[in-house]
Amino acid sequence: MTDQPLLSVCDISFRYDITQDVYALSAISFDLNRGESLAVIGDNGSGKSTLARLLTGLLSPEKGAIYLDGVELNEGSKKMLRRQMGIVFQNPDNQFIATSVEDDVAFGLENLNIPYEQMRSRVDEALELVDMYEYRTKDPSQLSGGQKQRVALAGVLALKPELMIFDEAFVMLDPMSRRSILETLRRIQSELNVSIISITHDRDEIEFFDSLLVLNQGERVMRGKPAEVFKQMSSLKPPFAEQLRRDLVDAGMDLPDYYMSESELVDTLCK
């Protein structure tokens, strides 16, 4: 059973108002393997947050099913399956439950009935990873938006779930810290074999992910490696490196005609 995907989304549809024929998501399917990372992109209102809420069992699909580790997500299995996942929502303000940074990071651990010593070390470790350790006793009103996002992130890291879901969880971070946190996540992904789904508008974030899911008005447009997606969809605004490559080719430079990540491009240019 090792080649079974961790997450399997089978043909799910969902609408908020069942009296109307407007679907927030229609017939979405995709698989996600263990240790694989996926970026979900799409315009405002394309159903990305709705997908995140369905994956965490906050909403249930009208049609289709979601399987985590081969178990169908439903009212009965929800509680057990949620132990394997962590999510950071879009709005950092309303995710802060406790009265201080470290208490908030510990909240999920408390609910899993984890002994104090273990909580202490996991909380400290997670706060170090997001560079918030010095702020551990601060209360939420003393933090900036980006700092609150880091705390929410630490809350998920401390849980050490098998699946992490981020709904535009890095938008408030400054570019430098965003890079470093994405690198940390990539390291965790390979070290602990964690799967990551990140909903994002930031095209430059995409190169940190193994594959890409493009949504448009609730429908799946494409799923594939960033290289494939950007090759096939010329209408999609590519990440900076790819844009640069295209511009350089247009300007008559002799570069290979395929998608390149930033580091690949740098290597080629330096030759």
């Binding site: 069992g57 408390e110 899993l112 009935n113 909380v123 809350g155």
Partner: peptide
């Protein structure tokens, strides 16, 4: 809810 808070469930205290 997602962080598994359950009313009446045994939980530790940080």
């Amino acid at each position: 809810d997602v962080k598994n808070y359950q009313s009446g469930e045994k939980r530790t205290h940080f």
